[in-house]
Amino acid sequence: MESLETMTNAVPERTSLGARMQLSFVVPDLQEALKFWTETLKVGPFVVIEDLGDRHFFYRGQESPVEILIGFSYVGETQIELIEQINSAASPYTDFLESGRQGLHHFGFWPDDCEKARLELEQRGFKEVLVIQASNGGNKVTYHSGPEHVGAMFEIAPMTPERAKHFAGLKALADNWDGTRPVRWFRTRAEYMASEDCKA
């Protein structure tokens, strides 16, 4: 598996956003989306996390009890994320679906210096709209809306050792997938990380 250093520095960094990227899709039906990606596009396997645990969502400055299911896989070096919100709390996900859209919602990045990346996005016309944070104040994730021509939000998150292990496990699964068990469901991220699927 890739180390934290490899996950962050394998490619020369030419932007404060870092060298790795995620494409995140918001969908009304995760099961249907998983079927399309695994059966039609032959991408997988997907690891689905049902409970994010100690995460608090603040959308446009107001705390919101957002509940989501997330599925992860990889296509080469690019991570694929599928999100279904399972309640009606205010969020960029519900706004997106209620506008009549679905599909590509945001680009995710894991820069070495998150605060520098956030500041540079703000200087380039992006606006912070969502903060996801643990109760202890750590592991801050932010979403930023951008100029109309970008067409999607940007997500900034720190590449913590836990996240690096999580992502390395996902990539190893995708790189070595033989077509079996196209979707692996886990209640929590910790459950997945303790499983054989995170050690593949």
Rank of each mutant, 00 (worst) to 15 (best):
T15Q: 14
A190W: 09
D51R: 03
F72A: 08
L41P: 01
A190Q: 08
R20L: 14
E128F: 08
P28S: 01
T15D: 06
V141Y: 13
R101F: 06
A90K: 12
S3K: 04
E50A: 07
A90E: 13
S195C: 04
N87K: 07
Q79S: 02
W185D: 13
E2H: 10
A172E: 12
S16I: 07
G125D: 06
G76K: 03
S24Q: 07
E155P: 04
D54M: 03
V131L: 08
E196C: 11
G71Q: 01
V75F: 08
S73A: 02
D95M: 04
W185H: 11
M7W: 11
G137W: 13
I132H: 05
V26H: 10
E191F: 15
E50S: 10
P45T: 07
Q85N: 08
A10Y: 09
V43A: 04
K42N: 13
S3Q: 02
S91P: 00
R163N: 14
E120G: 14
S64A: 05
P147A: 09
A152G: 04
C198D: 15
P158C: 00
K165A: 04
G146H: 05
I49H: 13
K42H: 12
T160L: 02
E5C: 06
E2L: 09
K140E: 12
I156D: 04
L173M: 07
E196L: 15
L119K: 14
V47E: 05
W37N: 12
G179V: 07
A200W: 14
F57P: 04
E84T: 05
A134R: 12
S91E: 07
R60H: 01
V141Q: 12
A172D: 15
A172V: 07
E148D: 14
N136Q: 06
A134K: 01
V141I: 13
A200I: 12
G18D: 03
A10G: 11
E120M: 13
Q22S: 10
Y74G: 00
F58R: 14
V11K: 09
D29H: 02
L34E: 03
C198R: 15
E128R: 15
F109K: 06
G100S: 14
D54R: 03
S16H: 12
S3Y: 01
Q123D: 06
W37D: 03
V141F: 12
L34T: 10
L173N: 02
Q123C: 12
K127L: 09
G138S: 07
G146N: 11
W177I: 08
E2W: 11
G169M: 01
E39K: 09
Q22W: 04
V141A: 13
L41W: 03
A164K: 05
S73F: 01
N176G: 14
G76I: 10
N139T: 15
L119P: 15
E13F: 00
M1G: 14
